[in-house]
Amino acid sequence: MRIISQYAIPVMVVFIIAYGFLKKTDVYGAFAEGASSGLRSVVNIIPPVLGLFAAIGVFRASGAMELLAALLRPVTNFLNIPESLVSFALLRPVSGSGSLAMANDIFVNEGVDSFAAKTASVMMGSTETTFYTLAVYFGAVGIKNTSYAMKCALFADFVCFVVSMWICRLLF
């Protein structure tokens, strides 16, 4: 497993360059051209990322997440869902680094092999940061009306939450 993740990038890089060389492509020229257009994409994603970071920053610092989790408490207590998991599920689609830090908090506070820690791990690994992905992808091409993309992505995140808990209850 470790070997695959360690060698994935080097093998890809060498393979792409060697293939280009064998096909008599101007490898370095193509690389410089592509990197330049990539840099323009990077500039395009700055405004959506700025908006997102501002919203996530105030959302986490203000305690709004805890208030929301408290509002959901009657339902989640009834379903016997640990409170840390509810906060984690609320943060997961919003902030990648934030939810990674929170997963680590759960590992430390409740034990890395607890139900909450395992479920948080599964949720962490089986979905991406929805808001970031949508903001960046649509922001880069300047589309403001995202149609039904957000609805569907959040639906998938909700399914992920339910399925992760279900699998962890079943397997562990």
Partner: peptide, 30 residues
């Protein structure tokens, strides 16, 4: 702080993003 965080983020991933765009262009050309 979110302004600074945004630019820290873009600086930390921007270079590698441009790098992969470069490799993508090589793979495209060949």
């Amino acid at each position: 702080d979110s302004g600074k965080k945004t630019f820290d983020f873009v600086l930390s991933v921007g270079g590698i993003m441009a790098m992969w765009s470069g490799f993508m262009a090589v793979a495209e050309k060949s």
